[in-house]
C-alpha cells in the first residue's frame, strides 16, 4: 500500500476553513449552553413546581437521546415546527446546544448542590434576596468547583461536533469525508482529521486544567 500525503496539502485551505467551522460550532454551542444550563439548573432547584417539572423533563429527554438522533430530528422537525428554513449550521448548532445544555444543567445543579447551605444562609442573613445570594455567593463557588467537568464537556463537544456532518455542515469531519470521497485517499484523510482533532483538543483540555488550578477555591 502506498501513501500520498500530498492530498492533505492540496486541500489545506478547505481543511483549515473546516477546522475553523468546527471551532466556531464548539464555541457557539458552549456560549449558548453555559448560560442556558445555569438557567435550567436554577429552574430545577428553585422554581415553582410545575416549571421545575418541565425543566426536569427537558433534561431527561435530551440527556438520554443519542446526539446524532437529535441532529437528524432537528434537521427534519425544526423547519416544520418553526416554519423557518434554517441553515444546516443553525440546525446543527441548535441540536448541539439542546444536548449540551441538558448536560451543563446537571453539572451546574450538582455544583450548586455541593455548596453547603450555610453559605446561602450567611448571605441571606446579611439581607440578600435568595436570587442575590445564589448569584453573588453560591454560583461563583459552584462554577469554580465544576470547571473540570465543564472542561471535559468542552472537549467532548469539540469532538461531537463531527456528528453534524450528517446534515452537511461543512465542519472538519464533513469536509474531510468529502475530500476522501473525491480522492479515495482514505487513510491519509482520516489520519489528517485525527491529527487536527487531537492537536486542537489536547491544548484546550490543558488550558482548562490551568484555569481550574488558577481559580480553585481552597476551603
Amino acid at each position: 500500500m502506498n501513501f500520498d500525503w500530498s492530498v492533505v496539502g492540496a486541500h489545506r485551505d478547505a481543511l483549515a476553513a473546516a477546522t475553523g467551522m468546527t471551532v466556531l460550532l464548539t464555541v457557539a454551542t458552549m456560549a449558548i449552553a453555559v448560560p442556558c444550563g445555569i438557567v435550567v439548573a436554577a429552574l430545577r432547584l428553585y422554581a415553582w413546581t410545575p416549571v421545575r417539572a418541565v425543566a426536569t423533563a427537558y433534561v431527561e429527554l435530551f440527556r438520554n437521546l443519542p446526539l446524532i438522533l437529535v441532529v437528524y430530528w432537528a434537521f427534519y422537525v425544526l423547519p416544520i415546527a418553526t416554519g423557518l428554513g434554517l441553515s444546516p449550521f443553525a440546525t446543527g448548532l441548535a441540536a448541539l446546544a439542546l444536548n449540551v445544555t441538558a448536560y451543563n444543567a446537571e453539572t451546574f445543579r450538582a455544583g450548586i448542590g455541593s455548596i453547603r447551605r450555610g453559605q446561602l444562609e450567611a448571605a441571606m442573613a446579611l439581607g440578600m434576596s435568595r436570587a442575590q445570594a445564589v448569584r453573588r455567593i453560591v454560583l461563583p463557588q459552584a462554577v469554580r468547583r465544576i470547571l473540570p467537568v465543564l472542561a471535559s464537556t468542552w472537549v467532548s463537544l469539540f469532538k461531537d461536533t463531527s456528528l453534524v456532518s450528517v446534515i452537511a455542515v461543512s465542519e472538519l469531519a464533513y469536509v474531510a469525508m468529502q475530500i476522501r470521497a473525491q480522492t479515495f485517499r482514505v487513510l491519509e484523510m482520516l489520519t489528517a482529521m485525527a491529527a487536527v482533532y487531537w492537536l486542537l483538543g489536547y491544548p484546550q483540555a490543558k488550558l482548562v486544567d490551568w484555569i481550574q488550578r488558577r481559580y480553585a477555591v481552597t476551603e
Binding site: 450555610g118 453559605q119 444562609e121 450567611a122 448571605a123 441571606m124 442573613a125 446579611l126 455567593i137 476551603e219
Partner: peptide, 20 residues
Amino acid sequence: LRDIRRRMGMVFQSFELFPH
C-alpha cells in the same frame, strides 16, 4: 424580612465566610 435581617447581624458557629 430582608430589611429586618440586615438590621440583625448574625455570626455562625462554622463562620460561613465566603471562601472565594
